[in-house]
Amino acid sequence: MELCDILNYEFIWRAAGTGIFIAAVSSALGVFLVLRRFSLIGDGLAHVTFGSVAVVMLIGISPMYITLAALPLVMLSSLAILKLTRSKRIQGDAAIGIVSSIGIATGIILISLSNGYNVDLFSYLFGNILTVTQTEFLLSLIVFIIVTATVIIFYNDLLAVTFDEELALTMGIKTNRINLILFILTAVAAVLAMKVAGIMLVSAMLILPPLIALQLSLNFKMTIIVSVLFSILSVLCGIIAAFMLNLPAGGTIVITNVAFLLFVLGVKKILLLQR
């Protein structure tokens, strides 16, 4: 099949559009998360999403609206992680581990209790952006607009809190509010990224593009922009490769991200050796 032929399919355009919006959202938020050492929150929320999707399916909500219906539970879990990380008795990574375990355990129990929806649930584990619905496309567009506006409006505050939360507090920044915004938006991004990369690979969407951008020693604003650009490029290359080579889209997108990271690391190493 020729590359031009792919463009004749409407579902490819919808997949590419959804993928671009979700990749942009995940990679922009990922910069703040990676720098604040919350990289693993993607994994944690993905596991919670697994449990939430199981709950939503058990209730019998139409598959068309599963992403939307799973959102409130994942948001609540994200806030639980935030609350637990503030606890003096529980370390941040342990807090993510607790919520993550509850999510995956709930999912497994609900699967064992049910008989009819195992196949559908497992399709969420690996994702398939090529089957994205019109509702999910619109939802990802709305989330893209909300996250872009939020990052622009709260850019100074987000930067200060990422730099040093205590210092930000002494600048009069409402750090609790900023954390709340970041964690809620991350929950939304994690649920949406599930459709692109699958639950197993959500954290890759949040972590890999920021890691690529961080290798380039740019200022903060450019780091976010470059992270977003690499994530979009990875989604587009991944979708094309998946379609042409008949590979799973989620895995191909993530592997494309990894390839970009290795390429940037390699070029960086060569440049350092030449100095």
Binding site: L35, N156, M171, S217, L218, F220
Partner: peptide, 28 residues
């Protein structure tokens, strides 16, 4: 903004934090 504070340790002062001197001084 009437207070200037310099803490003992800054969390962000690691090798990979992507913030220029200009951006740091303008924080907040």
């Amino acid at each position: 903004n009437r207070i200037g504070y310099l803490p003992q340790r800054i969390n962000a002062l690691n090798q990979h934090f992507p913030c220029t001197v200009e951006e740091t001084v303008n924080l907040g």
